[in-house]
Write a protein that binds this DNA or RNA. Sequence first.
DNA 1: TTGCTGACCGACG
DNA 2: CCGTCGGCCAGCA
Length: 117
Amino acid sequence: MNHSFFQSVYDVVRLIPCGRVTSYGAIAEYLGSRGSARMVGWAMNASHTEVVNLPAHRVVNRIGMLTGKRHFGAQGIMEQLLNNEGIEIVDDQIVNFEKHFWNPITELRITNDPQTP
DNA sequence: TTGCTGACCGACG
DNA sequence: CCGTCGGCCAGCA
């Protein structure tokens, strides 16, 4: 059960800095499965029973909408967690989403400058 | 085993 | 602009 696609997803989610968010598709693409964004969401669903201390609230869909808020138990928990990190949300939508977006492909790049000839 | 579902995404009309 | 559809793949009845 160790080393699986799910574990890889959890590993990336744990690396999301406080006050930042990313998308399911970005994680899937970082893991090499561009079209498998749904598996990322499925992994998060399984994380309820398999993993703890996982900042799942920092993972939203590609447009910054809190589509997974209903999996946090009570309504509004996901929004509160993000608000606590300085992220503003209006109508289940992150304000200035691009500003808070954290791309694992860009940020988790192996120790190397983004501009290499 | 088959078929459907899903915290998604991009393309098409 | 909007709704719809196909692709992706792991679980479950």
